[in-house]
């Protein structure tokens, strides 16, 4: 981190080795095609490099921050019009990313996807996936699933609480 802050370009190689698999997994989960995921990851690195001075360690962990940078880029990508037209109709469950077995990389306490999704009930999982990976707003989720907005909010909170308990 210090080296990144000092604009040391070789630090980016280390950063890549440490985070790329996780970031790539999330991006791929959102954009669904490998070519686009690669582009987004590269854009993400550029953005992280440029925005690094604005990263405030007191506000959150580095991984959360870079995750959000990449997630926002990926969501922007699928929200761009032409992408929407071609991919919006593709079901989430059919995506290649979902079928991938989780590979633990840098966190020793890493919990596998199977364990996590086993704890979430299907409604909670569906909502968290739409919100976190689908680029949907809560109102869009409510519309898509034909649920009241309140129910969507409740399930989203419950889902995160479940996840928090898992790592507590």
């Amino acid at each position: 981190m210090q080296r990144l802050r000092a604009r040391d370009e070789s630090a980016m190689t280390l950063f890549y080795d440490k985070y790329s698999a996780a970031l790539y997994g999330v991006i791929l989960r959102i954009v669904k095609t490998e070519e686009v995921a690669e582009d987004v990851l590269q854009e993400g690195l550029v953005k992280i490099w440029h925005s690094f001075p604005s990263y405030d360690a007191t506000k959150g962990r580095l991984f959360t921050w870079v995750l959000n940078v990449c997630r926002n880029l990926a969501i922007d990508k699928i929200r761009s019009r032409q992408y929407r037209v071609s991919s919006r109709t593709q079901p989430l469950e059919g995506s290649a990313a979902l079928r991938q077995a989780a590979v633990p990389t840098f966190r020793p306490e890493h919990i596998g996807l199977q364990d996590m999704t086993a704890k979430l009930n299907p409604e909670q999982k569906q909502i968290i996936d739409l919100l976190y990976f689908g680029g949907f707003t809560q109102s869009e989720v409510a519309e898509e699933l034909n649920l009241p907005l309140g129910t969507v909010k409740t399930r989203a909170r419950a889902a995160i609480k479940v996840l928090s308990k898992l790592i507590r």
């Binding site: 791929l28 959360t64 995160i160």
Partner: peptide, 10 residues
Amino acid sequence: LESYAQAHTH
């Protein structure tokens, strides 16, 4: 959320 994201590592 990090660990959920991590779970999708690819």
